[in-house]
Structure formats: structure tokens, C-alpha cells
């Protein structure tokens, strides 16, 4: 019987270190450092009067955290964002999974979501404002309109791509339809479902920023609009970069959650 190779202690430490996942963090930080450096140089030249160097932007960021304006803005922005993403996630995963499982649902819903994904949905935001006014509803809808199609279509594809052999296996052991979905289809589809959720969340971020820029300036959108109007470019950039970083961290965090909850076998190797 063959033995599974396990990392043993004879391997030098640095090789083991290089073989682990930890170093990807280093490369990522390095990549960010390079970007910040290039930005700093571009800002110092300067290539444009509206482009402050990285250091100045970073100081502005600290200042905005200190005076509470950034935190207040996030509190405002996060409300419709979280509600919108929660609605999109629950609704999107349900619709998508249903579409994958039932041809009726597929015929009914697929064309709508395919069109929604292909269309520039941002163009609908003024229409949403026209119908629902400038309040919370519009902003939540703006998030949903952007996040929902990508989540639905990914879930649908995920369920469609479930290994047919595993489904047959479940059937051969007299698994019920429900067991088939809960024990085979969802776990096997979960990587693609989560990929869809990640894309959906980033689309949701686009939606909320668009909504805050186009509907009424509140939260982050307000900070960006205000600082641009008074030519506080450092503050404006700090806000823009902060929302980008926030979005990236959220999406990355979801990947962690996925690995922990659904794919125990990938935890060690991912």
C-alpha cells in the first residue's frame, strides 16, 4: 500500500516556508508597496494637480478617521449596502439554485438575468430614483440590480456543473431528492456559488457608490462629492481608495469563510 507523503522534518525550514501559503501575503504586500511607491512618485512630479502623492493621501485618510467623518460616512453607506447584498445573496442563491434544478425555473428566469447581466444596469439608477425617490429603497435597489444577476447566473451555472457521477452515486444509494440537493449539489456547487457571491458583493459596492453619487450624496458618495467640489483631492482620493480596499477585504474575507465552512479538504492546500 502506498504511503501518503507528509511533510517531514528533514526538509529545510525555508523550503517548507516557501511551500506554505504564507508567502502569498508577502507578495501581495509587495505588490501594494510597489503601487503606493509608483503613486507617490507620480504625485510628487506631479503629473496632475488633482493627484496628490500617496503620503499626503494617507495622511488625509488618517485625518478623516480621526475626525470621524470617514467612519460616519461608512456607517451611512453600509446600511443600504448590507441590506442590498443580503437580499441579493438570499434571493440570488435561491433563484440560481432553483434555475439549475428545475427546467421550468430556468426557462422563466434565465433570459431575464442574462439580459440584466449584459445590460449596463447603472443606466437604470436614474429610473429607480424616479420611481422610488431618493431614500433608502432606491439605494438598496441599486445594489440589488447590480449584484443579483451575477449571483443568480453563477449559482445557476454552479448547479448545472455539478458532477453527474456524484448525483448518480447519491441516487444509487437511494438518496432522496432533498438529500441529493443538500448533500451533493450544494457542496459540489459551493465553490462556484461563492465565486458568484464574491462577484455579487463587488458589484454591490459599485451599485452603492453609483447610487450615492447619482441619487443623493450621502455617506461615501457624499465625501467624494464634497471633497472634490472643494478641491480637497487628498481627502477625495483617501475616500475612494478606502472603499476599494474595504471592498477587496470583504470579498477576500468571504473566501476564507467559504473554505472554512464548505471545503475542509482545501483548507490545507489552498
Amino acid at each position: 500500500m502506498a504511503h501518503i507523503s507528509v511533510p517531514n522534518n528533514e526538509v529545510p525550514g525555508w523550503i517548507r516556508w516557501a511551500a506554505t501559503r504564507d508567502h502569498t501575503l508577502l507578495w501581495r504586500l509587495l505588490s501594494l508597496g510597489l503601487f503606493a511607491g509608483a503613486w507617490e512618485i507620480a504625485g510628487q512630479i506631479p503629473i496632475n494637480y488633482a493627484l496628490p502623492p500617496f503620503s499626503q493621501t494617507f495622511m488625509a485618510f488618517l485625518g478623516m478617521v480621526a475626525d470621524g467623518s470617514l467612519i460616519g460616512a461608512y456607517a451611512t453607506t453600509l446600511q443600504p449596502l448590507v441590506i442590498g447584498i443580503a437580499i441579493s445573496a438570499v434571493l440570488g442563491v435561491s433563484i440560481g439554485v432553483l434555475m439549475g434544478l428545475r427546467p421550468m425555473a430556468e426557462w422563466l428566469a434565465a433570459p431575464v438575468f442574462v439580459v440584466m447581466q449584459a445590460a449596463p444596469m447603472a443606466a437604470l439608477i436614474p429610473l429607480i430614483t424616479f420611481v422610488y425617490g431618493i431614500g433608502m429603497t432606491s439605494k438598496v435597489l441599486a445594489v440589488c440590480v447590480l449584484a443579483l444577476p451575477v449571483i443568480v447566473l453563477n449559482c445557476y451555472k454552479a448547479v448545472r456543473n455539478v458532477n453527474p457521477s456524484l448525483v448518480a452515486m447519491c441516487k444509487s444509494f437511494q438518496g432522496t431528492r432533498w438529500q441529493q440537493v443538500a448533500k451533493i449539489v450544494i457542496p459540489d456547487a459551493s465553490p462556484l456559488i461563492f465565486a458568484g457571491l464574491r462577484l455579487g458583493i463587488s458589484a454591490g459596492f459599485i451599485g452603492i457608490v453609483l447610487a450615492e453619487l447619482l441619487i443623493t450624496p450621502t455617506g461615501i458618495g457624499d465625501l467624494i462629492t464634497y471633497h472634490r467640489s472643494v478641491a480637497n483631492y487628498a481627502e477625495m482620493y483617501a475616500t475612494v481608495v478606502s472603499i476599494i480596499v474595504f471592498s477587496a477585504v470583504t470579498v477576500g474575507g468571504l473566501q476564507r469563510v467559504e473554505l472554512t465552512l464548505f471545503r475542509p479538504e482545501k483548507r490545507e492546500i489552498a
Binding site: 458532477n163 457521477s165 456524484l166 448518480a168 452515486m169 441516487k171 444509487s172 444509494f173 437511494q174 451533493i184 457542496p187 459540489d188 464548505f262 471545503r263 475542509p264 479538504e265
Partner: peptide, 20 residues
């Protein structure tokens, strides 16, 4: 009429759940 408890299937591609 369908799979039953008196039969068990061994699959060519093993059909193992990778997450289990």
C-alpha cells in the same frame, strides 16, 4: 423501478465526494 437497498454500485470514476 429505481435504485434499491439490495443493490450497490461501484463507479468507474469512483464518484467520491471531494469535500468528505
Amino acid at each position: 423501478t429505481g435504485p434499491g437497498p439490495e443493490r450497490a454500485f461501484v463507479f468507474q470514476d469512483f464518484a467520491l465526494m471531494p469535500w468528505a
